[in-house]
């Protein structure tokens, strides 16, 4: 199922699952990720699943590229290897104007009213393709074709923690204050990454389903964990 394995530097494997970005390809990546993680192959330091790639970094003192490539090629993934414990997570989101930083830009570029944009966005099921960039940040999709828009021309230096944004076919949550260029249409008071909970630090894992529902500012302040 892996189309090609090459080296990324001298201490990582670059497993290419093709160029498509869709749930089918990504599910394959997640399947490999979970299987390899479970096998605890000696020398593997880190696994980084993304839309259609899996990067495996390793300890060059223990194993090398050729040896690990062979091990990964020999893995046989069957249908029954798929873990079925993926969750559905509902994320409360406040879309009042003070949190929906880019709603006007979205509205004018997409030629839709705020209400229409939120109707197309909220209460829809989104698939979690991957987690990362910053700790716990989920990359979710796919959003309605009518509300897809490119990133801001000039990214923000600081996107506030909790911001919910969209770009192209994807939506995400800024789990920490960070630079970023996504179109922000709301904010969630829920803590997505909890460094104090080492067993389960992240709320949303690759393969999970996420749904955003609207709350008002009063509820937002009451729920605020950030």
């Amino acid at each position: 199922m892996i189309k090609n394995i090459s080296n990324l530097g001298d201490a990582a494997l670059y497993c290419d699952f093709g160029n498509d970005v869709n749930q089918k390809t990504n599910t394959k990546v997640i399947r490999y990720f979970e299987n390899i993680k479970y096998q605890k192959i000696k020398g593997i330091n880190n696994l980084i699943p993304s839309y259609n790639k899996l990067i495996i970094s390793f300890d060059l003192n223990v194993i090398n590229f050729v040896e690990l490539k062979k091990k990964i090629e020999d893995i046989n993934i069957s249908e029954k290897d798929i873990k079925q414990n993926h969750k559905i997570i509902k994320i409360p989101t406040c879309c009042d104007d003070e949190y929906a930083l880019d709603i006007e830009r979205l509205s004018s570029k997409l030629k839709l009213t705020k209400k229409e944009i939120l109707e197309k966005y909220l209460n829809k099921k989104y698939f979690c393709y991957m987690t990362g960039f910053i700790a716990g940040m989920p990359f979710l999709g796919d959003i309605d074709k009518k509300i897809r828009l490119e990133r801001l021309e000039t990214p923000r230096v600081k996107v506030p923690k909790g911001a919910v944004g969209i770009t192209e076919q994807f939506t995400n949550i800024y789990t920490f204050e960070s630079p970023g260029g996504w179109n922000i249409l709301g904010s969630t008071p829920i803590k997505i990454f909890n460094q104090k909970n080492e067993k389960q630090p992240i709320l949303i894992n690759p393969g999970d389903t996420v749904l955003f529902y609207e709350i008002n500012k009063k509820e937002y302040i009451k729920l605020n964990e950030n």
């Binding site: 990324l8 530097g9 201490a11 990582a12 160029n19 970005v21 880190n46 980084i48 699943p49 993304s50 839309y51 259609n52 790639k53 899996l54 990067i55 970094s57 991957m130 990362g132 960039f133 910053i134 990359f139």
Partner: peptide, 30 residues
Amino acid sequence: IRSEGLIKGVIQVPADGNPIIMLSDHGTIG
């Protein structure tokens, strides 16, 4: 490119043509 995993030491080149080398605290996806 479609966002994908990074490791330390990777040299990325954004549209402005100025290379960035990923160091130990890098973002995990780029």
